[in-house]
Amino acid sequence: MSDSREVHEHIPEALLRRLERVERAYGRLQRTNRLLLIGLAVLLGTAAATVVTLALRLPPAPGEVVQARSFALRDAKGRLRGVFGMATNGASQLVLQDESGHARLRLIVLGDGSPGLTLIDQKGRSRAALGLLPDETITLAFADRQGISRAALGLTARQAASLALADSDGVTRAGMGVAADGKSTVTSLNGERGSGGSGGVGSLRV
């Protein structure tokens, strides 16, 4: 105790009063912090209750599946730009159109399950088509500006590959193929045929 009195005797009176004011201010700060914590807890509780109430009042979430026979896609000017729906023959198809209303792309699945993709020019002619038949034969065909098929690349269910080339009248002028066993053939318009073993290529006359 004597040591404590000696220490206080050496502390200036002004400094002691300042320390007392700091201690009183610190006590008020602690009480204020407790009040703030209580108020924050009440506020959070009220906010949580409000969120729960709003969640209960919100309408139910929309269904994940929208069902219809067809859908129409329109641009900002109201022009029809696409149609997705069922055709009268039982095929499902997606048709996308340009700004003039011309169909430019058609994706279709026929009633027998055969899928196909067609690219269409501005005049409505099919210029390229990719199709897969039920027997797993797949064909890629190209047409000219008149809509005449000029080239066709195919792969049969027996794994035979073929390429056919036609003139502007649609008459096949040349063709080549590779069978599943690796034998290749090349055929010209006049019926001459060259054949070879695996990897061989015959003569081609156009």
Rank of each mutant, 00 (worst) to 15 (best):
Q97K: 14
E192W: 02
R150N: 06
V201L: 10
R5H: 13
Q30K: 10
D112F: 02
R205A: 14
V51M: 14
L189I: 04
L133F: 04
G199I: 01
V22K: 10
R31E: 14
D181A: 14
I138Y: 00
A151I: 10
S203V: 05
R158G: 11
T32W: 13
Q146W: 02
A87S: 07
G113F: 03
G101Q: 02
R106Q: 06
K123T: 07
G116N: 03
T32C: 10
G101F: 12
A14H: 14
G147W: 04
A47M: 09
D75L: 03
G177V: 02
A55S: 12
E13K: 15
L204T: 05
R18E: 04
E64Q: 13
R24V: 06
R57D: 14
L132Q: 02
A141W: 00
G111F: 04
R145N: 10
Q67F: 01
S149A: 05
H8T: 03
F142G: 01
G101P: 01
G194P: 05
A103E: 04
Q159T: 12
G113V: 00
A141S: 09
I148C: 03
T46W: 13
A157N: 06
R125D: 00
A91H: 03
M86H: 14
M176K: 02
Q159V: 11
G63W: 03
S203D: 12
S184L: 15
R158N: 10
A161D: 01
I120F: 05
I38W: 12
E64Y: 11
E9S: 07
L96Y: 04
V83L: 15
L29F: 09
D181G: 14
R17C: 01
G154S: 15
E99T: 06
G170L: 09
I138F: 01
A41T: 13
V65G: 02
G82S: 07
L105Q: 14
R145I: 06
L163G: 02
S195H: 13
G111D: 12
L110K: 00
R125W: 01
A166W: 02
G191A: 04
D167G: 11
G196P: 10
D144A: 08
N33W: 08
E99K: 03
T53I: 09
P115E: 05
G194T: 12
R104T: 04
Q97N: 15
S126L: 00
P12W: 08
G177M: 04
S70E: 12
L58G: 11
V83C: 06
A55F: 05
R173K: 15
G111T: 12
I138C: 02
P60F: 06
L15Y: 08
L56P: 00
G197E: 11
V42P: 06
V65W: 07
R205S: 15
V178A: 09
L105D: 00
E23S: 14
D3Q: 15
R17W: 05
T172W: 02
E13C: 06
S114N: 07
L117R: 01
K123D: 12
R158L: 05
T118D: 00
S4W: 11
L165M: 07
A141Q: 01
R21D: 05
G101V: 11
A48Y: 09
K183A: 10
R173G: 07
S4Q: 15
T139Q: 07
L140Q: 00
A49Y: 05
S100A: 15
R18W: 00
K77H: 14
H8S: 09
L19K: 11
